[in-house]
């Protein structure tokens, strides 16, 4: 296993009296898919929000290639190579598919992007490549709001591809996809993994997890209860009981 790109230790966050995340440690190695699995309300999305700077952690640390990213703003974390998707996608609904993707390559807030014509051509190439890899080239001029559900999901992936990030945090990327789209999505993820991207995905579909994940971190009530190979985790009857909501039996 290669050295982890992102290492979180003891991440904690409470909302009022509720501990949403309580001491989560997680390491994401390059070229591996780590799945965050757990029942609803386990704190999975909160872990993403703590890493990306959308939420401030009460305690704990997150190191990206040896540098702390705690206290950074979301756009600063993104510029360091952490890309994320959202469960509700958050596409730029009234922009064209191409503009959605191209926008992911443009991080300067200034009136123009740095780097001149060569950089512009590189951004355009990254845009076209992301469109091609997600099968959206023919829909490039359509508006995001007019896309079918599966295409919207792939557009959300195309933005991440175009951002050329080394770490992907994907929040339920395969939910609601039909089998054919799921296979396409799987191929996309495997390709990125082969290219050395460190991927962390939150996923409820255990078939997807079994097929794609190299490791699983099982979260419940804000804590990592178990971490390891998918087969070992998914076969654990106690975890299965928690996952399927039968806590009485698990206790």
């Amino acid at each position: 296993m290669s050295a982890p790109v992102l290492v979180c230790e003891g991440l904690s966050r409470s909302f009022g009296g509720v501990k949403a995340v309580a001491g989560v440690s997680l390491a994401l190695p390059a070229g591996q898919v780590t799945a965050l699995v757990g029942p609803n309300g386990a704190g999975k999305t909160t872990v993403f929000n703590l890493i990306t700077g959308n939420l401030r952690a009460d305690a704990g640390s997150a190191m990206l290639r040896g540098r702390s990213i705690m206290g950074l703003k979301p756009h600063q974390v993104a510029r360091m190579g952490v890309a994320r998707s959202f469960q509700d996608l958050r596409l730029f609904t009234h922009m064209s598919v191409r503009d959605n993707v191209q926008s992911a390559t443009e991080t300067s807030a200034w009136f123009w992007q740095p780097g001149g014509a060569a950089a512009r051509r590189a951004r355009e190439a990254a845009t076209e490549e992301a469109l091609a890899r997600t099968g959206l080239t023919d829909l490039a001029e359509a508006r995001a709001i007019d896309l079918a559900y599966a295409e919207r999901k792939f557009l959300s992936m195309a933005r991440i591809l175009a951002a050329r990030a080394g770490i992907w945090l994907l929040d339920e990327p395969a939910s609601g996809l039909d089998l054919a789209s799921r296979l396409r999505f799987g191929a996309l993820l495997k390709e990125a993994r082969a290219q050395g991207v460190a991927i962390c995905l939150i996923e409820h579909n255990l078939d997807v997890v079994t097929e794609l994940a190299d490791r699983i971190a099982f979260l419940d009530q804000g804590q990592v209860l178990a971490e390891g190979e998918p087969q070992a985790i998914l076969k654990d009857p106690k975890l299965a009981a928690i996952y399927f909501g039968d806590r009485g039996e698990a206790a």
Binding site: H75, A78, H94, M95, Q102, A104, A163
Partner: peptide, 28 residues
């Protein structure tokens, strides 16, 4: 028509997603 317009429209449509793509929303 250019990158700045795209940045503004992306902020208008989904501010948190624009931030997650590295855009300094407050500056834009």
């Amino acid at each position: 028509r250019g990158a700045f317009g795209r940045t503004l429209r992306s902020i208008r449509d989904a501010e948190s997603a624009a931030e997650a793509l590295g855009k300094n929303v407050a500056a834009a």
